[in-house]
Amino acid sequence: MSNPHANLERRRQAIYGWLLLSPAALLLSVFAFYPSLATLWSSTFSRGNRRNPSEYIGLENYADLFADPTFWLVVRNNLFYAGITIPVSIFIALSMALWANSKIPARGFVRTAYFTPTVLPMIAAANLWLFFYTPGLGVLDQIGALFGLPSVNWLGQPETALWAIIIVTIWKEAGFFMIFYLAALQTIPEDLKEAADIEGASRWTYTRRIVLPLLMPTTLFIMVNAMINSVKLIDHLFILTKGGPSDASKLILYYVWEMAFAFFDAPHAAAMTMLVLLVLGIVAAIQFFLIDRRTHYQ
């Protein structure tokens, strides 16, 4: 049945396929798969010191975390942070894109202005916002003083610190997401709008029934990105609050960093990293499998 030539051809195809796969597979193995497994492995060991060498302790590190009130506070902070930044930045990005896509004067300027925060490094953006938030000297206080309002230490009090961080993130992200929406809007043919016009659809009906559904693939993409960013983007914490005051603005990744490099507790940091990976994986899967099914791709 099998002839030698066909077998050879099949093998050649297989080798060809593996050769194409290998660069990506190699890079991912070295920089993603191996570190993840190594982290999983090290999260099951105790923290070693001179007297007690590191030893296998199973899930004890995880149990410690679940018993740690700071961990739960940080989780709550991060959920709140994600719950506000994701929908708000998507909404603002969409509104800006719809506006910047319409026939307005100085369209190029508007688009550039919206996009500027994106090209700034997060550290630079945070420094910029430090000028806004600083009590007494900051722009916000200066404006407040004009109306006779008292000086507010936005970053220095537990009630406002996380909000201040959230606003910086939204300011930074919305312009970036707007670019994706803008690109998607340009792919919607002009004559769909004209067809809707002739049928008597209002601008709002057209946006709701035609534009938003056609933007769904982009929205899904942006949602996944915004979610990842809500965990990943912590640079500004280093400049603005360092997680304070009294952990009010501390996010998970910042806590991981602190655990590993400030308290030198690598096993607990590893355990926390694994939890973050697990949760992110589950949420991404839900987004892709549930929302994807209701999304129209061109």
Partner: peptide, 11 residues
């Protein structure tokens, strides 16, 4: 109106 591209709503 019938458009050259038909202008059907793809979704």
């Amino acid at each position: 109106m019938v458009f050259q591209s038909y202008a059907l709503f793809p979704h």
